[in-house]
Simulated assay, not measured.
Amino acid sequence: MESTTLEKETATELSGDFPLFDKLKNYEHEQVVVCSEPSMGLKAIIAVHDTTLGPALGGVRMWPYNNEQEAIRDVLRLSRGMTYKAAISGLNLGGGKAVIIGDPRKEKNEALFRAFGRYVDSLGGRYITAEDVGTDVQAMEWVRMETKYVTGLPKAIGGSGDPSPVTAYGVYKGMKACAKKAYGSDSLEGKRISIQGAGHVSSYLAEFLEKEGAELIICDIYEDKVNDLADKVGAEVVDPDDIYGLDVDIFSPCALGGIINDDTMDQFNCDIIAGAANNVLDEEEKHGQMLLDKGILYAPDYVINAGGLINVASELEGYNEERAQGQAEKIYDTILDILNYSEENDTPTFTASNILAEKRMSDVGKIHNIYTSQSNFTGHIGDLYKHANL
C-alpha cells in the first residue's frame, strides 16, 4: 500500500501553479491523503479540513468520477462543508470527507473497503469515516474490520445503522421551516415538490412528503430506482434534464452537488430550493447571490442535510435513536434562524449560515487555549508535572 500526505504547511513550499495547493490555500485544509492499492482497485482521497472543534467526521463517497481532478474538487468542497455542518449543528467535531474513485454498482467489495479502512486507521483518529453516496452499512462493516474510526455501523453490533432516515427527516423539517418563511404556514399539503435523485435519502424524504399530501415529481439517472420509488409514493417521473425547469413550489436536489450553476440558474421556476445534496451551489458567492436576486429561498445544504451527521455522531457517545431524532428536529429552528438573519441583513442564506458557524468555531477555539491537564491527573500532584511537559 502506498499513501501520500499533503499538509497545509507543505503547500507553502511548493509551486502555486499546482491547482491542488491553490485549493488547499483557499479552503484552508489541514491535510489531504491520497491512497492507492492497485491490486484491490483502490484509488481514494481523504481530506481533513478543520479540527478546531474535534476530530474530522465525514462519510466516504464512492463514485465513477470522470477524472481525478473532479474527485479532488469534490472531496475538498465536501470536507469543508462538513466543518460548517458540524459547527452549525452544535457538534464537537471537525470536518472531513473521503472519496473512492469507482463504480459502486460494479466495484464495491470487501478487500477494497478493508484497504481503505487501513488508511483511515493510519490517521490515528484525526478522521472518522461513515456512509455516504455509493456506500452502505455493509461497506462500513468491512471498514470496521481494520479500524475503530468508523460510524454508521449496523444496529446489530451497536451502531446506528443507515443514517438516511434521520437525514431525510432533517431535510423534511428544514423544508417545512422554509415553507413557514415563504408562505406563512409550514404545511406542505398540496405543494408541488420536485426531487432530484431516488436514492436512500430521497426515498425516505418522498415518503414523509407523500404522507403530508404533497404532489411529487422525481428523476434519477437509474430508471429502475426512480420507477420503483414513483410507484411507491405515487410520483410523476421526468427526465433528469427536465427537472430544473419545472413549475413547482419546491425543488429538492438530493443527488450530487454543483447543480445550481450558470447553465441551470435561468431554468429554475420555484419558490424554495431545499434538499439533501451537498455543495449544490457551484460557486457559492456568485450563485447564492443570484438566488437571492431571483427571490428564491435557498436552505443552505450543509444545514438542512445535517441529520445524517447528527445520527452517526451520536454513535460516538453511545447511540440513542430518540436523542438523534430530537437533535435532527432542531434543524427546523436552525433554518428559521438563518432565514431571518438573511432577511434582516439582506445577505444570501449561505453567507448567513457561514457567519453563524464560524462564530461558534471561533468561540470554542478560544476555549482550547485554556490549559488543562487532560485526564492524566490521578490525584498525585507529581502527575501534573509529569504530563505537562514542564
Rank of each mutant, 00 (worst) to 15 (best):
R144P: 13
T167M: 10
E141N: 13
V150I: 14
A156M: 12
K148C: 03
M140C: 05
A156Q: 14
P163L: 01
V137K: 00
E146W: 09
R144A: 15
Y149N: 14
V166F: 03
T151R: 03
V150K: 08
G159S: 08
T151N: 09
P165Q: 07
E141H: 12
M145P: 10
I157V: 13
K148P: 10
S164L: 10
V150M: 12
R144C: 13
D136T: 06
S160E: 02
T147F: 05
P154S: 11
D162P: 03
Y149L: 12
T167H: 07
T151I: 10
K155G: 05
S160H: 01
G161T: 00
G152L: 04
K148N: 10
K155C: 07
V166T: 10
T167V: 11
L153D: 03
S164M: 11
P165I: 06
Q138M: 12
G158L: 02
A139V: 14
A156L: 14
M145A: 15
P163T: 04
S164D: 12
D136Q: 06
G152Y: 02
I157S: 08
W142H: 07
A139T: 14
K148F: 03
M145F: 15
I157Q: 08
D136G: 09
G152A: 04
M145E: 15
V143H: 01
M140N: 03
V150Y: 11
T147K: 04
R144Y: 15
G159E: 03
D136L: 01
M145D: 15
R144L: 15
T151F: 02
V143F: 08
V150C: 10
M145V: 15
V137D: 01
P165V: 08
Y149A: 11
I157M: 13
A139L: 10
V143Q: 05
E141M: 12
T167D: 09
G159T: 03
W142A: 07
K148Y: 07
Q138D: 08
T147Q: 07
P165E: 08
G152I: 06
E146H: 10
G152T: 06
G161M: 01
D136E: 08
V143E: 09
L153E: 01
T167R: 04
P165H: 06
M140W: 03
E146P: 07
G152N: 06
D136W: 02
T151D: 11
G159K: 04
G161C: 00
E141Y: 07
A139D: 13
P163D: 06
M145Y: 15
K148G: 11
L153V: 05
E141V: 13
G161Q: 00
W142Y: 11
T151L: 09
E146A: 14
G158T: 00
V143K: 02
I157G: 06
Q138E: 13
M140L: 10
D162W: 02
T147L: 04
E146S: 14
R144G: 12
W142N: 06
A156Y: 12
Q138A: 13
G159Q: 05
K155W: 02
G159W: 01
P165R: 08
